[in-house]
Computed example of a mutant assay.
Amino acid sequence: MSKWLIVGSGGFIAPRHFESIKNIGDEVVGTCDVKSDTNPDFTDYKEMLELVSADAVAICTPNYLHYPMIQMALDKGLRVLCEKPLTLSSKEIEQLPNDGRVGAVLQLRYHPVCYLRPMKKLEGGSIILKVYRDDDYWASWKGSKEKSGGILFNLGVHYFDLLIYLLGNEYKIIESSYSDRLAKGKIDFNGSVFDYYIEIMDNNDGQDRRLTISGQEISLSKQDNLSYEGWHTDVYRDFKGGKVVTPFEACKSIKLIEKCIHTQQQ
């Protein structure tokens, strides 16, 4: 039985981590959050790392804190499972070890659509994400491009990771545009061309997460949030067995996002 610490224990995504740790037979021995009203064991991450003996830490904090918190945990000899994105730049993620000590939560790799992956050639199509987020979203760190990375880092990274996982890491960006609420473009994956459309809507009508590939239209989730699909437990089970989405793998979607942003800026 492994002993876990959770930082960001009072946040939206943390319950998926508590549940998954329990599901795989491990235990949480320390929690940390800056919001004292969520009743964490600690409000100071460094203090928790110093005082509590553990095997691993789950990082559920705002995106801009991921990289320094990963490094601090590694310095204490802990394994790390971190919510997406691991970092907000490819330069940072390339500094992380690829020996199984660090894993990224990119749970769309557990979607049944991944049965298509062994096929030699997949035809192009589209990936569409339309989600509603209320005023609390925009008032939080998620509404800050500096802290979240913006719409592509905060939402698009799951879907770009899925496309690379299915189609490979050879691609050319044909079109790209983005704003706070909308990112869209066209990417050629070695002959398989995909349109992407990622929108944060201001109403709750018509939410959608859909992939069209090789003539098949596939729902990626009908839940209000992707985390409700239950794939976090699969991520934890594999992490416990030594199988992780390494920084090297997670970096591929980060670099694709950076190139999409750069393409628009040209």
Rank of each mutant, 00 (worst) to 15 (best):
N203L: 12
G11S: 05
M119L: 15
V244L: 14
I13Y: 12
N225F: 14
D202Q: 14
D75L: 15
G215T: 06
M119I: 15
Q264S: 01
L81C: 11
T263A: 15
C251H: 06
N154K: 14
N63P: 13
Q71M: 13
E92P: 02
G25S: 02
D135S: 15
E92H: 06
S219A: 13
Y132S: 10
F194V: 03
T43P: 09
D188C: 12
T233I: 13
T38V: 15
K76I: 08
K172H: 06
L78W: 03
G230E: 04
F189W: 08
K130V: 10
I24V: 13
F248I: 05
E249K: 08
D37A: 12
F153D: 11
R237N: 00
G156W: 02
T246F: 02
I93Q: 04
A56L: 10
G143F: 02
I93L: 12
V235K: 02
E47G: 06
T246K: 07
M72S: 14
G11P: 09
G150Y: 03
Q107W: 00
E50H: 09
M69A: 12
I151G: 04
A54T: 08
L86W: 04
M201L: 15
S90W: 07
P15D: 04
A73V: 13
G25R: 06
P85N: 09
D202F: 09
E94A: 15
N23G: 05
K255T: 03
S227I: 09
G100T: 04
E47N: 14
F42K: 01
S148N: 07
S2H: 07
F239R: 01
D99E: 05
E50M: 15
S20C: 10
N23S: 05
H232L: 14
L5W: 04
V244M: 13
Y236M: 13
I21Q: 00
I21C: 02
R109L: 12
A56E: 08
R101L: 06
E83D: 12
M69Q: 14
K46E: 14
G10D: 06
H66K: 08
D238R: 05
H17S: 07
